[in-house]
Amino acid sequence: MMALYNGDEKDIREFFRVYCNFFKEQGYDVVTFEACIGMIMPGAGALGDSRVIPVIQEEDDFRNYPWDDIPELYFKEYSKYFRALREEMPEGMKAIGGVGNGIFECVQDLTSFQGLCYIAADDEELYHNLFKK
């Protein structure tokens, strides 16, 4: 769905018109759509690229991370897609999905898998706080 992110408002609306109608024509009563939160998390990327230096490696990194900014960043980036989805939704259908990426993927995207393993062994409190946050 990466092409979705390159269009203007008209392109986005057309995408969702075609996308939603596909589900309707196939007999579904729901349309699935999610926008991945990992793409907007500051400093993320350690999950998909081992060359990325994890943004969270210790407690200070965790405390200084802009956690409170994430909802605003998410809505700023993705509201236009959810609006277009709503506007193009065929009558009687609903949408399911929403925020893509699970908690485990998001944590790994900030710490890397290897880094998360070290945190789990060396700093149990930080490990638990990452998943709570």
Rank of each mutant, 00 (worst) to 15 (best):
F131V: 11
A44H: 03
L85P: 03
D68T: 15
Q108M: 06
S50H: 12
I56C: 04
F22L: 07
G92K: 12
V107C: 09
D122A: 11
F33S: 03
Q26F: 08
T32P: 00
T32Q: 06
P42E: 12
Q57H: 00
D69T: 12
A121Y: 03
E77S: 14
L126N: 04
D8E: 15
C20Y: 05
D109V: 03
T32V: 04
P90R: 05
L73Q: 14
L116I: 00
E77Q: 15
R83C: 00
A46R: 09
P42S: 13
L116H: 03
C36S: 11
S112D: 05
N6Y: 13
E91V: 08
M2E: 11
G43N: 09
R86D: 11
R83F: 01
Q26I: 00
M41L: 10
R17W: 06
F22N: 02
W67Q: 10
E105D: 15
R83Q: 08
V55P: 01
M89E: 14
K133S: 11
Y78M: 08
K24Y: 10
D60N: 07
R17H: 07
D49I: 04
L126T: 02
S50Y: 11
F82T: 05
M89P: 13
F75P: 00
A95T: 15
L126R: 05
E25N: 11
Y5N: 10
S112C: 10
A120Q: 11
A46N: 08
E14C: 08
D29N: 15
M89Y: 13
P42T: 10
F113E: 04
C106E: 01
E105A: 15
G7Y: 14
E91T: 08
E25C: 09
M2T: 09
I40D: 04
F82R: 09
F16I: 03
R83M: 01
I53R: 15
D68R: 14
R51C: 09
S79L: 03
D61S: 06
Y28N: 03
P66K: 04
G45N: 06
K10Y: 05
E72H: 14
G97I: 06
G38W: 04
E9N: 14
H128S: 12
K10N: 13
S50N: 13
D122T: 12
D123V: 03
V31Y: 06
G38H: 09
Y78P: 09
L126W: 05
I103V: 13
F75V: 15
Y28T: 06
P42D: 12
K24G: 07
C106R: 02
F15G: 06
D29Q: 05
Q108G: 00
G115C: 07
D123S: 06
D68Q: 15
D61K: 09
Q57P: 03
P66I: 08
H128Y: 04
G48F: 00
N64M: 00
L130H: 11
C20P: 01
Y65S: 07
F75R: 12
N6W: 13
T111S: 09
E58H: 05
C36E: 04
Y19N: 03
M89C: 11
V52F: 04
S112N: 04
E91W: 05
K133W: 09
G102M: 07
M41S: 02
I119G: 00
G45P: 04
D11V: 09
D49K: 11
F33I: 05
F62A: 05
A3G: 10
A95E: 13
W67P: 05
N101C: 10
I12V: 15
D109W: 00
I56T: 02
M89I: 11
E25P: 02
D61V: 01
I37C: 07
I103S: 12
